[in-house]
Amino acid sequence: MENAAYIAERVRNIADGQRDLPGALLPILHAVQDALGFIPEAAIPIIAEVLNLSRAEVHGVVSFYHHFRRQLPGQHIVQICRAESCQAVGARALEAEARAQLGIDYHQTTADRCITLEPVYCLGNCACSPAVRVNDEIHGLMDAAKLSALLAALRSQVVEVR
């Protein structure tokens, strides 16, 4: 319950703070996801009320954009570029490697909640394809061995438990 109250308060503060921006919905959704890691179901009626929209309208926007998540992701988000430039130099094999090593498919999170795997269509790193994005960092000239080492490094990082 405490958590629900916290989420409601955070979302309301964010929405109130940006309600006067022209076209405020996307900036608000970005801010909510940056703060909470995802857009909780409970955020939708609050944002709708603040912006004087229907819940359906807010839900429609959240579900339209690939970037907005409705589930809490793992600690790290790993995106494999699936677009043509990366396909030309082995992206399909890279996707297979990531799936096999993590034992998950796209839009899934490892059981230890460490990594969420997502597809992405172009990271603008096409001169040095294939590309992989880990959180806000982009890695170029990837191959199976480099990806494997990168994923292993993410999973061996010490997680602080408080």
């Binding site: 405020a24 996307l26 959704l29 970005h30 339209f64 954009y65 690939h66």
Partner: peptide, 21 residues
């Protein structure tokens, strides 16, 4: 933006800027 290729189309981009799909 929020990860939608179609928003590179100018009218979809305007819709997105206005806070819609």
């Amino acid at each position: 933006g929020a990860g939608a290729y179609i928003c590179g189309e100018e009218t979809a981009l305007l819709e997105s800027l206005e806070g819609r799909r």
